[in-house]
Design a protein around this nucleic acid. Structure first.
Lengths: 344, 344
DNA sequence: ATGAAAGCGCTAACAA
DNA sequence: TTGTTAGCGCTTTCAT
């Protein structure tokens, strides 16, 4: 009942036999280590082709203790993995980078604390060489788990604690927010409100900081907390409107919240950007380009952040490989950029 | 330079020694095979706990030829994996099912034909016990690749060819479309147009069929082809309006296209649903609940479809396991359901 | 530069 | 019921 084609799979032994060399030599050629004379190497390569040989990863892992696989762990998909293209895009970047370096991506989605034990076991099981952690809460135990398992780790988004050897990749949330508000100020806006994300996430806090950098001493009632959903954005917009009827601009901490805000403004017949200008954050294209009017926003290169995370992790996994292995590894803050559309 | 914690990892040998039994007995306990007397088993379990033993998967795979891992292969992410939460949701269902059966999910994203070779090698490499294939085009070579690699496969969405042992999971596209149109007819609509998806995808074709089932002999100009993007939906809507100014309803083959259509209608001051009723397809909640007005649509249980794919594949991988292994495996068509919101 | 041989940690016959 | 033993396919010293 076992699969015939698997049974057929040629081993290194077979390749060696066909090429008339020892298994050791065949192995050397397959792994590209030098010190095999050209003609021999050529014969081995031909044998590989003819037989359609593919190395058995399990056997290889058993001896090298290398998996060439990396886990992507997403804490609580319900939060964002669902509707937000954010993670999807990031995963795509990760996938590209991993692929380029012949690593595989093992996806671990968790539904809550109960799953953490399973993830911990998995990481401790040495199935992967490293882990990329996403969507952590404030006091998430996942990083500790990974550390205990002895698995090198890189975190997506600045964690709430800071710690010498915690590596993360995040965009310049604070600088981006500052740019957004500065742009509004340059456009002559004076009564600028802020729709913040949930303030137990660092991204929200950092964006709020940026807002304050540009607008120190803002009346707290000009700031409303949302939750990164359209509904939350709508509620926050309504609150803002109530507290400050003479508002002339809003900076929302995410495009998705901005879309909820725009909706409220439309419903009330408030013209955007004439009466109130709106700036978002993220540049989730499928959202920002399709709001009415299209959204001016702060762009972060999400896919690139994914790539960087993967690259960082891979260097952490095997410090020697790839790059000119000099500089110590450190966290990365990627730049943001204002994208002007119609809403501001 | 190798990770200390990995070096420390106890082997089965160590467990056996500590429990004072042979490696074979320890293995039996760990793998839950019966025939080990209770007290011995207990001692082994204690040793496992004390040592924090976790089986080495590579060693296990090497002998069992089982990976307990499944690949999810997505052809051309640019198409949908990007903005469409569809795949994300499906992956989530897959993940849940796989997790429940102690299997891992290896994600393989491809960017085009060049990547197929890599995927083929990977599948042929016996790294995974099976593969789930998504977003195939009409003449996609991926299934052939997987077959050649001898890897059991289940496809997401009805493939364009049909073939005794090609297993797939899809929703009842045709029936759902029929229901949508019937609902419009029951509501008294008489001039009903259709915004189709790209007709080189079976989902689009099937939905068009369903439309025709309910409305045989429809003037071809009442049907406009979109491409599953908002832009495409908008263009198709404009075309429809031009050809049939007296339109009183539209059935769009996806929520995303419907959102584009709604936008055009709003721009032209056409009231929805008063002047023109709109029904979508998919029930992507983050889209359908947030259009203006919220979208009446045909719901498919995307996550459940993911679960079913995983379940089907796992049964195909090891026919004996799990269920009361009687019935032959067959493709699955899941039901759809009308969800009434405000647009129709 | 090449080959022989010793395992990596585990499971599964086979013996006892 | 338990233990002994032979590999699974590969990499990697160590000889040659």
């Amino acid at each position: 009942m076992s699969d015939p084609s698997l049974a057929h799979r040629p081993t290194l032994e077979a390749v060696a036999a066909r090429a008339g060399v020892s298994r050791a030599t065949a192995s050397r050629v397959v792994n590209g280590s030098d010190g095999v004379r050209a003609p021999l190497a050529e014969r081995v390569r031909r044998a590989v082709d003819e037989l359609g040989y593919v190395p058995n990863q399990a056997a290889r892992t058993l001896v090298t203790r290398r998996n060439d696989a990396v886990a992507v762990v997403v804490a609580e998909p319900e939060t964002r993995f669902f509707s937000d293209p954010f993670l999807t895009q990031q995963v795509r970047g990760i996938s590209k980078e991993l692929t380029a370096r012949d690593n595989q991506l093992v996806l671990l989605l968790t539904e809550g604390a109960a799953d953490y034990e399973r993830v911990g076991r998995y990481l401790a099981g040495g199935h992967v060489d490293g882990a990329l952690l996403f969507s952590l809460h404030d006091d998430d135990t996942l990083p500790a788990l990974a550390r205990r398992a002895g698995v090198p780790t890189v975190i997506g988004g600045r964690p709430s604690w800071s710690d010498a050897d915690t590596l993360y990749v995040d965009c310049d949330n604070r600088g981006g927010a500052r740019d957004a508000v500065t742009y509004l100020l340059d456009g002559g806006r004076r009564r600028i409100g802020h729709i913040a994300g949930p303030l137990d996430q660092t991204a929200s806090v950092d964006r709020l900081e940026g807002f304050r950098d540009a607008l120190p001493g803002t009346d707290p009632r000009m700031i409303a907390e949302g939750d990164f959903t359209p509904e939350g954005g709508a509620r926050a917009m309504a609150a803002l409107l109530e507290h400050c009827p003479d508002l002339d601009a809003v900076f929302a901490a995410s495009d998705v919240m901005a879309s909820g805000a725009l909706r409220v403004l439309r419903t009330r017949g408030i013209k955007v950007p004439e009466d109130i200008a709106v700036v978002g954050f993220d540049d989730i294209v499928s959202v920002a380009e399709w709001t009415d009017p299209p959204l001016t926003t702060i762009r972060q290169d999400i896919e690139e952040m994914g790539r960087m995370m993967a690259r960082l992790l891979l260097r952490r996994v095997s410090p020697s490989a790839g790059d000119a292995d000099g500089p110590a590894l450190s966290s990365i803050i990627t730049p943001t950029r204002l994208v002007v559309r119609a809403s501001a």
